[in-house]
Simulated scan of single mutants.
Amino acid sequence: MSSNTRTLARPLVTAAIALTAAVGMVGCTSGGGGYAVFDRDPVASDELPAEYVERDSDLIDAGTSRLVGEHEGTRLYLVEGATGSSICLVVLPADEEGMAGCGGGGGPMQVSNARETYEVRPDGYDVPDGAVQISENVFAVEP
């Protein structure tokens, strides 16, 4: 893992978080680069719950959150990292505490909890084999 890749675990999160960034993509982009979802103006549904923002304000720039979809009752948001050079996937299941994983933004990364694994890919990447496409950039994949 590079120094641009960060694995996050919060004390109250019962799910394990795994973050993996792909190697080989040249020229990491800054937050939002390569993710068209950030080109649109935010709408009310893009807003993260206040309790999540308070807990993870050191990790994410909540003002950049974009709801990218739901998968089996779990809401998924792409958010720029607090450093401005990373992209984060916030995973908010309906029945447990949320979590986030962040990476450099230049290539694919995965975020996993006890039930599911999600892969984030910048614009223009192919759909991963066997994946369920949730948005242009977010996929549910086999762990």
Rank of each mutant, 00 (worst) to 15 (best):
S2W: 00
R6A: 11
T7W: 09
L8S: 13
A9H: 14
R10P: 00
V13N: 15
V13M: 14
V13T: 15
V13Q: 14
I17Y: 03
I17G: 08
A18Y: 12
T20W: 01
V23R: 11
V26G: 02
T29C: 03
S30I: 03
S30R: 09
G31Y: 00
G31D: 05
G33F: 01
A36F: 05
V37M: 09
R40F: 02
P42K: 06
P42W: 04
V43W: 04
A44N: 09
S45Y: 00
S45R: 11
D46Y: 05
E47F: 00
L48I: 05
P49Y: 08
P49E: 09
P49F: 12
P49Q: 11
E51F: 05
Y52V: 14
E54Y: 02
E54N: 10
R55S: 12
D56T: 10
A62E: 10
T64Y: 03
S65R: 03
G69R: 02
G69W: 03
G69V: 00
H71S: 14
G73M: 06
T74G: 05
Y77W: 14
Y77C: 08
V79I: 12
V79C: 10
G81T: 04
A82K: 13
T83N: 14
G84L: 01
S85Q: 06
S85E: 07
I87E: 10
I87P: 01
L89G: 12
V91L: 08
L92H: 08
P93N: 08
E96P: 03
M99Y: 13
G101L: 11
G101W: 11
C102P: 06
G104A: 13
G106H: 01
G107V: 00
G107F: 01
Q110D: 15
Q110M: 07
S112G: 11
N113W: 07
R115I: 04
R115N: 13
T117I: 05
E119P: 00
V120M: 15
R121A: 15
P122E: 06
P122C: 07
D123T: 11
D123W: 09
D123V: 08
G124N: 06
G124M: 08
G124V: 01
G124F: 02
G124Y: 04
Y125C: 10
D126S: 14
V127Q: 14
V127M: 14
P128K: 07
P128T: 09
P128F: 03
D129C: 00
G130D: 12
V132F: 11
S135W: 10
E136P: 02
E136L: 07
E136R: 15
N137P: 09
V138R: 06
V138A: 07
E142S: 15
